[in-house]
Design a protein around this nucleic acid. Structure first.
Lengths: 206, 206, 206, 206
DNA sequence: TATGAATGAGTGTTCATTCAT
DNA sequence: GATGAATGAACACTCATTCAT
């Protein structure tokens, strides 16, 4: 059983994390101050330092859990018993949804940025997760195209596939609509984009 | 006739603008200080305020000329006597190059960002320019696909075309390579991406 | 009879005091935080406030026991049946050792520092102890020189003797060596300094 | 001719330096804040950063000029045509006066403290100056005692001489009296301390 | 008795901006 | 027109201390 204190503490921490998430997403990491986060979370800015080492720690704690969850979901989708192209489609949509839910935070995942050599642990973790995600997507594309993993064409068309994916995310990451609205309205568009792209690619691969 | 003073004055202003452009592009808007710009421009940081209301004004004045130049170049390309698909390809590559040259400044073009109600003029101007650019690209795509401008399919595939375009830009806008290096290395990749995409789209449009 | 609770309580207090002593001595008063002390003492930092009004109170409580112990030892040395000059030598070396063991804490003994008018008790106590120590040393010097306690020369040469003593302490109070190392290495030097000084003084006194 | 602006600027800088000097001396470097200095100097705390890189720079600018001046004066005294013992006496008194004028700042000269390896320039400069001073004093003592520079006795008695010197400085560096008052009142005492010490030492050296 | 939670005051430092010249 | 001087607001972060439990 958890005491009332522990409960309150947990609430405060969650509130800080949630506030930081909202603010980082809407205004960007640099533009958000610790006091902004505190005000949003309804506590003193010093309280944040009780739960998080510094501003950067906040950012990382904020980004690891969702990305790990995403990886798990991708794994689940990959292990399903369905045509490779269906899997790729599902994974792609899932990645899009994930990035839109985490809005501008996705920059954290997809840009290398500030990888300090001396204290590598947190960035390394994200780097690893990101590389894993890329690997899984590549794997899925490979299965769809029926290419050998050494084939130069695989790299080329994976890149191009990523352009489409990243373009979708970048286009709508600044939207004011909710993710539900966006996905509801545009999922067919996204699906179509992958479909036509794969048609084009297949015409080249063979 | 312009006096010598006016001439010197104009030179200073241009120097400030040029310096700000270089610095904003290479280090990002936030990371550049007014003193940095002044040092680069060879004047005092207070001098900047004679010509520009504040730092943001600098950014806006800075973004109009290149975007206008881009529009002009796109117009030139459009008016050339060559196959529509060649034109679209050329325009697309030109837009990519433009966005990479202006790096993180391109956010200014493609995101709405901080539209203050009281003094809308500069944002409006950029909005107009951007809309024009989108219009021209759409027009070019329309010509390639041979679609009616009212056709729902036009909107759909233009959107998808933009995904690819925007994805390329977003992918490489944080790169440390020079634009020359990037374009030299990846232009074939970019071209291939547009080609396969159009193949796929055409197979649907008929 | 003391209850178990009282016993535990006393232990905690002693632990805090001991930890603070170690830390103040090794890192200096200002550089040590209440949390540092608490961690070292194995309790919460708030617990410290149960036993001590504030950080400064800790410092004062910390300085009394050793200085009282020193006074006692000096008394023992004084009461021994040996030549006065041997006694003075022994006392001097003991004082040096004491000051080096308590390192930068010795400032507390030898400087007046922040005597608040409202709550004078702790400073008063230290003042008294210090004055007693000075008195005993003067007494010992007097015995060595065979001077009358009213003699002006006594004050003069006592002062000079203190210069030497204080100079030794000040010189080595910032050293990184342990007290054992320092005393082992330099005790002959210290002894020689007192010896030549007394030779010089005696040549003047008669 | 200097403009009014330059004059004001110079005044501000001097005022900051003077205020920092007073405060560092009376309360110690760490206990003084940039805002304290600014208030004392009658300017904003940010103004300090116009003239000095950071707090440490202030400290070093504050300490170099006087120590260089001291070195010069010691050189002058050394080059005079008078008995070695008179020179040593004069130099010793000069060093005492210097340290009392610069009160607790002398800690900066005489303690090694915080010599960072990476950015050595400022500390190095002070280190050099201090070593020069020590060298000159040793040289002077050597001349008085007529010892060979390799003689072990020279090191021993130089050390002891320094104890006396440093003891005097440490004793009066916290005094509230002005330097004039102190020197006027105690110069005979200081002179006597050196005299008896040298008598004692000479009796050993030969 | 003891503690985790929380905070206000304060640290050095930076920066866009204003003002007097 | 141009600039050096100056500043207030803000930044991330720390710490001694208080409060509710």
């Amino acid at each position: 059983m958890v005491s009332k204190q522990e409960q309150r503490s947990e609430e405060t921490k969650k509130s800080i994390l949630a506030s930081a998430g909202v603010l980082f997403s809407s205004r960007g990491y640099d533009a958000v101050t610790m006091r902004d986060i505190a005000k949003e979370a309804g506590c003193s800015h010093t309280t944040i330092y009780i739960y998080f080492k510094d501003k950067e720690a906040l950012l990382h704690q904020l980004s690891m859990p969702p990305i790990l969850q995403l990886l798990e979901q991708v794994d689940t989708l990959l292990s399903e018993d369905s045509p490779p192209s269906d899997k790729l489609q599902a994974i792609s949509l899932r990645v899009i949804e994930f990035c839109l839910v985490n809005r501008n935070m996705y920059n954290l995942f997809f840009t290398v940025k500030s990888v300090r050599v001396d204290e590598q642990t947190p960035e390394m973790a994200i780097n690893q997760a990101r590389n894993k995600l890329f690997g899984k997507l590549t794997e899925s594309i490979q299965a769809v195209l029926g290419l050998n993993s050494q084939d130069e064409q695989l790299l080329l068309y994976t890149r191009i596939y990523f352009f489409n994916l990243y373009g979708i995310i970048a286009t709508y990451s600044n939207s004011d609509e909710t993710v539900e609205q966006l996905m509801g309205r545009l999922q067919p568009t996204f699906a179509e984009s992958f479909e036509v792209l794969l048609i084009g690619i297949r015409s080249k691969v063979k």
